[in-house]
Amino acid sequence: MRRQFKNTVTALAAYDDRIVMLLGDVSVYLFKDFKEKYPDRFYNIGICENTLISVGAGLSSQGFYPVVHTIAPFITERSFEQIKLDMCYNQFGGNIVSCGASFDYAWDGATHHAYTDLALLRLLPDMEVMQPGSVKEVDILIRSQYNNGYPSYFRLSDNPHNIDIPVTFGKAVVLKNTNSPVTVMTAGPILGNVFEACRQLDVNLVYFHTIKPIDREIIEAFGHTTIVVIHDAFGLYEAVCEVPGLTVFPYGFQGQFYCSYGTVNDARKCLGLDSLAINKTIQKYIAEHHNSRVTNVL
């Protein structure tokens, strides 16, 4: 995904000289082509996330489209107030592109895990929050949103899914509709596991790459079903719950520190987010629905 991000931004910069890269000493080697081509629009600002955002906002105030990039928890949690005030309140929009989504850096421990970013940033006025799950989604969403003047968050992962999905900003995608009384909703790279888990099940499956604005229309279309939000971070469940009157359950990361190391797949398995565990969970909801119908009939 990061390579696609670099390719997309470098291609855009060829004809849009308002794009300025601001790195927090991350992905510097990856962007060496950009640096060679556009040295006056490439700045490795340093390991100072607060100032990274403020500088981006300052550039935005003068008509540039800053692309701020570093590791997810640091740029979103440490710099939350800079994003809130310098970008959102001042209306100096810009692009924040993070890496290290959820448990991508499982081996680095809890200091490097990112699971609050989507939930936090969706609280901010005017903020656009995206969790592309594939390289195609990265490319289309960045091209679509980078120059609209709003503060836009793109959460990249090193573990994309490989499912080809039509991409339009703000529009969720129905991947499976069996008229089941149970609907799974998910977002981002974890779709790979969720898709596999749903393959043999009588269940509807809805996918989001945009967390804010959330596609209320599609949620409402499945509002008569039992909705299970399966996600490896906070944010999607809360966004789905914006729609009133739903029967909706969260499944996935539950908010305890994940204190093991290993790989992202180790973390997913431990958290019940491997495809087998997801499959069993969905089956449970399908069975519960069936049982409740039987009970009601009796």
Partner: peptide, 25 residues
């Protein structure tokens, strides 16, 4: 008023970004 300020330690970072913008231009 060029920037809405209040929370301390923000305006100077914005000023750095603006100075960078002028340097690029």
């Amino acid at each position: 008023i060029e920037a809405s300020t209040g929370s301390l330690g923000h305006g100077i970072g914005l000023a750095v970004g603006i100075a960078l913008a002028f340097k690029i231009k």
